[in-house]
Design a protein around this nucleic acid. Sequence first.
DNA 1: CACATATAGTTAGCACCCTAACAATTTTGA
DNA 2: TCAAAATTGTTAGGGTGCTAACTATATGTG
Lengths: 151, 151
Amino acid sequence: MNKDALTSEFLEALTNASRKIRTAFNQRVTAHGLTYPRARALLRLSKKPGMTQSELACELELEQATMVRILDRMEEHGLVERQPDPKDRRAKLIVLTPRGTEQAALVTSIGHSMRLEIFADINSEDIAAGIQLLNKLGERAMLMEDLRDLT
Amino acid sequence: MNKDALTSEFLEALTNASRKIRTAFNQRVTAHGLTYPRARALLRLSKKPGMTQSELACELELEQATMVRILDRMEEHGLVERQPDPKDRRAKLIVLTPRGTEQAALVTSIGHSMRLEIFADINSEDIAAGIQLLNKLGERAMLMEDLRDLT
DNA sequence: CACATATAGTTAGCACCCTAACAATTTTGA
DNA sequence: TCAAAATTGTTAGGGTGCTAACTATATGTG
């Protein structure tokens, strides 16, 4: 098979795997008012509370506008609180509520069991190689995005 | 590094790479009224015209409801037409318009050059290994989705 | 035949994700 | 100093993706 067909097939596999894993995760946590992106935010915040929205968005590699919506919903569900930053009146510090902390623990446990199941018969070397590959591709794509600014 | 942390990192890399590649592609084709999912549909249709919506959704591994809206927009942009199926009055056959055929060719060329750039310094063996891995994970996740029905 | 069931497509509603444009505030530099 | 530039968060609008519920048509079974 030539390389072009191979890369095409790779992107199809990437798209489909990504969507299916996200959907499967969502199905397992929707009962708790959670979703995949909310769970990611929850875990980051439980490790490093008091970040601004921009910092959190940057760590999750999301746009600020996307972060706003997700935090809106998380606040509605009582998972996080926006507190004014005493150092900068523009910024808001995001902290977990007690309920948010509980849910973070739940997410950790659900995520753990899902990953065990999904990666059951796959060895660590293949996973590590996959990470290398995906990060390389992601970086490439990010550089391509930035080209847009040079017009 | 233990395997759990490795799988966690893999999913982060998967999520980010998938989003960035999709975004980069969208940025390159939006000027032509196209998007990533529309491009996928266009290419399938150019290879096999006259499919029903269900068949197309199945090949693209999307839900029917998702397919409906994508085809709505493609029809609005004059890329495809819905024709009645003489064999089944419920079904509709999707065919490319002349403009759709043109755009399919354009997508082919843009996709080709993007893949060349993204996969420039990655060898075919690694790509093939990645496909194997992603397909295995996608299949696992799909099986997990179906478990939902057994409650 | 008649009724139950299955299938094709649609609509509605929720959640993401992005870009573009905006207000408030802070920082920078002439 | 003080106006220009950068940054923080927001809203608006477009485009996925899903599930659930609905209509119309086909099919299968008694």
